Amino acid sequence: MGRVVLVTGVSRDLGRRFARYAAADPGIDRVVGVDLVPPRGDIGEVSFVRADIRNPVIGKILGKEDVDTVVHMSVIATPGYAGGRGSMKELNVIGTMQLLAACQQAPGVRNLVVKSSSVVYGATNRDPAMFTEDMHPKQLPRSGFAKDVYEVEGYVRSFARRRPDVRVTMLRGANVIGRHVESPITSYFRLPVIPHVLGYDPRLQFLHRDDLFGVLRHAVLHDVPGTFNVAGDGVLLLSQAIRRLGRPWVPMPAVGVGLLGSALRKARVTDFSPEQLGYLTYGRGLDTTRMRAELGFEPAYTTAEAFDEFAGLLEPRDGHSPDVKAGSAS
């Protein structure tokens, strides 16, 4: 018997595409997709159930569908998608609490996979070169998506203590990038002129969309509990990434980038949050040793390869073709 998997957040593109990807796997019997609104694209063999994970009715769905594995992909980074910061926090935090409460009461649930984010580590000038999973942020997040993720992870750890019979796998992914990916970082790189903080050239890591799907599938099918950093090999400097895009960029003082980011956020051009500003100032490095040694997963794309594919999808804005050679130092 294969697994019966419930995937949250399937009205968004990543959730929908992962649900289809999982449904095609021979090791998975059925996939049930859950969200507030129906997905706009084709979901293939996925069974869609319209439900709000903030509502206790999610518990009835777990029992009715005989779900044994839950993949939680409803922790979102973009307030505009949720209808504002208040709704985003409610969906992220309250939704997770209700989902975990339902899982706790569902004896059939044996596996929980949570798509978390490396944003939980923060980004400051006191950070280590590489964060391991046992490290904590130098400064606790006070607002925004980072605070949501920090709280969500706390609730997941509490759930794991209450249900030690459930295998819990938490994946702290680097910024996901690729075709159809809409996020604060991809919106930033799509700007016609890219601002950056004067005097800083942060190290960036990326996770290809297909590798996100791959590691989620791997976590569903392999009984490896724990928390794992997930990212493609290597790093790119922000200056290297922008040059590969073939777009003009302008250095600005941090306060100027912050003010510009606020204006872009209000205009709904991109969600340029304070946490994004920190990341684009100081960067972040993830140690992925545990991903390989314990989880047993190897990404197909390096950080540079993932970014190069993304860059190749965009139109250059400076009259030159982007440099998309994976080994380029530009």
Rank of each mutant, 00 (worst) to 15 (best):
R17F: 03
Y21Q: 07
D29R: 14
R30Y: 05
R40P: 12
L62I: 11
V67K: 00
T69V: 15
P79I: 06
G84W: 14
T96R: 07
M97P: 00
L100A: 03
C103N: 12
P107Y: 03
P107D: 13
K115G: 12
S116I: 03
V120H: 00
D127S: 12
A129H: 08
F131W: 14
L140I: 04
L140Y: 13
F145S: 06
A146Q: 11
D148E: 14
Y150M: 07
Y150N: 05
Y150L: 10
V152F: 01
Y155A: 11
R161A: 09
R162C: 02
R163W: 13
R167V: 15
R172Q: 08
A174M: 11
V176Y: 02
V181A: 06
E182K: 11
I185H: 05
Y188L: 05
H196W: 12
V197C: 11
L204D: 11
Q205W: 03
F206H: 07
F228M: 01
A241N: 05
R243D: 11
W249G: 01
V257N: 13
L260M: 12
V269E: 06
G283C: 09
R284K: 11
R284T: 01
R290D: 07
L295A: 14
L295C: 14
F297C: 10
E298D: 09
A311H: 05
L313P: 01
D318P: 04
K325T: 15
K325M: 04
G327C: 04
S330Y: 15
